[in-house]
C-alpha cells in the first residue's frame, strides 16, 4: 500500500459518534490541548497525526477519561458521545470505558492466560451469564481480533508468551470483548515489526464495520492507509481535520503541508 490508495477511498458520511467542543487540557501549568473541536463519525477510522508532543495522545485519552487517572490533569470543555456529555458528573468513567475501549502503544497483556485476558472485561462488566456464554464471547472476540486460529489450541497459555504482534491483537480482542462502540488506539503499531503492523492495519480496516475507530499514529503512511478521516495536531492545536485523501493531497493549512512534506515533525 502506498499513499496513493488513500485517494481512492470512498468518503462516505456516517452519523456523528463523538463530538468535542472547545476542549482544553492542562497538565499542571502546561496547556496541552487548546480549544479543540472535532466530530468523529461512526463506522469510520479517524487518524490523529502530528509531531510528538503535539497532544494527539492526550486528546485521545480524553475520549474515555483515561486522563482521570493522572492527578495533575484537568480537562475542560464538552465531549459528547451519542449526545451525552461524558464529563457530566453523573457519568461513571467505569461505564464509559466499557463503551469506549482502548488499545495501547505497547502490547500489555495481563500476566494471565489468553482466555482470562479476553474474559477479563466481560467478567468485570457482567456480560456473560454463564461459562458457555463467556466461552462464546472469548471465541468471538479472538476471531474479531484475527488471532483465534493461532491461539485456539492454547487458550490456557499465558498471554505474555505470545509474540509482539500476537500480543497486540490479543489486546485488541480483549478490548473488543467488552463490546465497545468506540475503539481508541494509541499508536498500536509503534512497538511492532512491519509484518505485524500490516496484520494490525488489516484488522483495523475490518473493525471499522462494527466500531468507530480512533487511531493515534506518528506514521503518516499508516494514517493514509487505514483512515478515512484525519486530524492534524500541532502544539496542542487541532490544525486541520478532514477527509484523509484531502489532507494528504491538498492540505489547507501551511503547517499541515510542512508536516506532510517533512519540514516539521
Amino acid at each position: 500500500m502506498n499513499q496513493i490508495t488513500a485517494l481512492d477511498k470512498t468518503v462516505q458520511t456516517n452519523k456523528t459518534k463523538i463530538s468535542a467542543r472547545n476542549v482544553n487540557v492542562h497538565y499542571g501549568d502546561s496547556h496541552a490541548i487548546k480549544d479543540v473541536n472535532v466530530e468523529i463519525e461512526d463506522n469510520t477510522v479517524t487518524a490523529f497525526i502530528g509531531p510528538s508532543g503535539c497532544g494527539k495522545s492526550t486528546f485521545l485519552r480524553c475520549l474515555n477519561r483515561m486522563n482521570d487517572t493522572i492527578d495533575i490533569c484537568r480537562v475542560t470543555g464538552d465531549i459528547q458521545i451519542d449526545g451525552e456529555n461524558i464529563y457530566d458528573p453523573r457519568v461513571d468513567p467505569v461505564q464509559l470505558r466499557a463503551k469506549v475501549g482502548m488499545v495501547f502503544q505497547k502490547p500489555n497483556p495481563f500476566p494471565k492466560s489468553i482466555y482470562d485476558n479476553v474474559a477479563y472485561g466481560p467478567r468485570i462488566h457482567g456480560l456473560a451469564a454463564n461459562k458457555a456464554e463467556l466461552d462464546e464471547i472469548v471465541e468471538k472476540s479472538l476471531r474479531r481480533g484475527a488471532i483465534w486460529e493461532e491461539v485456539k489450541d492454547r487458550l490456557d497459555a499465558p498471554g505474555t508468551g505470545l509474540s509482539g504482534g500476537q500480543q497486540q491483537r490479543l489486546c485488541i480482542a480483549r478490548a473488543v470483548a467488552t463490546e465497545p462502540e468506540v475503539l481508541l488506539m494509541d499508536e498500536p503499531c509503534s512497538a511492532l515489526d512491519p509484518i505485524a503492523t500490516a496484520q494490525i492495519e488489516e484488522l483495523i480496516d475490518e473493525l471499522r464495520n462494527s466500531y468507530s475507530v480512533v487511531i493515534v499514529t506518528h506514521s503518516m503512511q499508516q494514517a493514509a492507509r487505514v483512515s478515512q478521516k484525519t486530524a492534524f495536531f500541532h502544539l496542542g492545536n487541532l490544525v486541520e481535520f478532514g477527509a484523509t485523501g484531502q489532507i494528504f493531497t491538498n492540505p489547507e493549512d501551511p503547517r499541515t503541508e510542512s508536516y506532510i512534506t517533512g519540514r516539521i515533525g
Binding site: V94, L96, R97, M102, F104, F110, I124, A175, T178
Partner: peptide
C-alpha cells in the same frame, strides 16, 4: 501499562488491583 490496560477496559481501581 498493566493498570492502563485494565482501567481502559472499564475496570475499577480495586478490580485492577485485585485481578
Amino acid at each position: 501499562a498493566m493498570r492502563d490496560g485494565s482501567l481502559g477496559l472499564g475496570a475499577t481501581r480495586s478490580e485492577t488491583v485485585r485481578q
